[in-house]
Nucleic acid binder design. Structure first.
Lengths: 246, 246
DNA sequence: AATGTCTAATCATCATACATTAAGGGTGAG
DNA sequence: CTCACCCTTAATGTATGATGATTAGACATT
């Protein structure tokens, strides 16, 4: 990679931890082609192979586990395995960073307006009948929850996420999923019955376009919808993130 | 969140590890409002407060550290602190998940086509003079590297990332940054001198639109650019991800 | 065929000890 | 007075050994 602006000429030799070295080696092996389910041996095996104590290996394992690379199972036949993929873990990593950096309302809504319209277009092309049915269910439920702000907000955000799911693109879905924790609290506090009715109606129209397979219409309707939704500005310098419910 | 279809009535009782419990408690405190730099005490402090041994605390710490929530410093006055934000760590989390799920060429290019055009539009509105200068530098360098496929690819991808940076939205930037590792290998192998010339020219035109502050033009030019770029299909069922260079 | 039981493998946790690192203060030379 | 150096001290990093808890699989029982 070419040097980006602001990159330091060298990064501090911070690690020098044996466990960090082990993490790096296993990460390399992982990206070198290991796949979910592959076994990596037991704590003792690895301790012996790397020539360190079990404590050090455990440190490395906890780190790899938190990164979502390996899973650990106890008992006979247990040990380390390459993990199955878990999109929510990635979404979680983003909420942590969003909290640390203190994402603003403006950044959040810009991101939504950048991604979601074209996502609706993809959904119109790719959505399965089952996914359309799920969308319809969410819209119907939302109509029935117009007076319950918290529940309505949940359902409305679920609708947006379901659109991302219907788009059939896991990278996009993961990104939108990761914005969810930041969205929730801000949108709930702006939800009145009037707003809820309009949101529910627009969601229905977006759904119709998706069900018809009309990508352009779905895109433009989602675009209009977001233009209205984000016109209720939140406080821009406040931290918005809460932990994802697990 | 409302119950998604396919959710099991109850999820398997996993872990029940003491260290996991500690991780959860500290995560809650973190999202409850702790900010970078806040001290959390020492290993021994925490071991006493949670009523567990140092080993258990260390397991929890390694996990929190890998999640990017805390940093650890040794020596007098050391201990746990809430970490500074590090967007690259998040990008890294995504590349792990992309590798595990085996993202396809189609998903990758769809994601780019969904996000980057509007990102170029944001850049046209928000880019500082310094950021425009950086973009121009990258375009010039790319013109000088038309025959060096690897270097040209680096510079071209840096251009796209610099556009995201100029857009001034850290959420979008983090997302595009995280796609980078998947992009690199696929684009390099399709780069001929002919393709490189066209890419460099289009980058220059996108830059001009950004420099002029013409958001619509920047958006449409980026859109056209990507339409061409992704017309070189890679193998769709192959794993594309490699670890980010650190 | 389904259920209960034993056993070995393996991680989770604890206790203790020593090594290594870094911050801060004290000391002496210039 | 200032600077370089060393020493103390606080804290993590690593090692060793032991015990308890959990699991898979083989085997026995209903």
């Amino acid at each position: 990679m070419a040097t980006a602006p602001g990159d330091k000429p060298w990064r501090p030799v911070q690690g020098a931890r044996a466990s960090g070295e082990i993490v790096e080696q296993i990460r390399k092996a992982f990206f070198g082609g290991m796949m979910p389910g592959d076994r990596l041996g037991t704590e003792s095996d690895l301790a012996e192979q790397f020539g360190v104590s079990r404590i050090t290996i455990r440190d490395a394992i906890r780190s790899l586990e938190a990164q979502g690379i390996v899973t650990v199972r106890v008992g006979a036949g247990g040990g380390l395995r390459i993990a199955e993929s878990d999109p929510d873990r990635y979404a979680d990593a983003l909420s942590i960073q969003l909290h640390l950096m203190g994402i603003t309302w403006e950044e959040l809504t810009e991101a939504m307006r950048s991604v979601e319209p074209s996502t609706a277009g993809l959904a119109a092309r790719h959505a399965s009948g089952e996914q359309v049915a799920r969308l319809r269910g969410l819209v119907d439920d939302a109509h029935a929850a117009l007076d319950d702000a918290a529940r309505f907000t949940d359902l409305a955000l679920d609708f947006h996420l379901a659109v991302a799911e219907a788009a059939g693109n896991r990278a996009i879905r993961a990104f939108l999923r990761s914005l969810r924790s930041a969205q929730h609290m801000k949108f709930e506090e702006n939800t009145s019955r009037e707003v809820a009715e309009r949101v529910a109606r627009m969601h229905g129209e977006i759904l119709d376009a998706i069900a018809d397979g009309d990508a352009d219409l779905a895109t433009s309707r989602m675009n209009e919808h977001l233009a209205l939704v984000v016109s209720h500005p939140g406080k821009s310098d406040e931290h918005l993130c809460v932990p994802l419910t697990q």
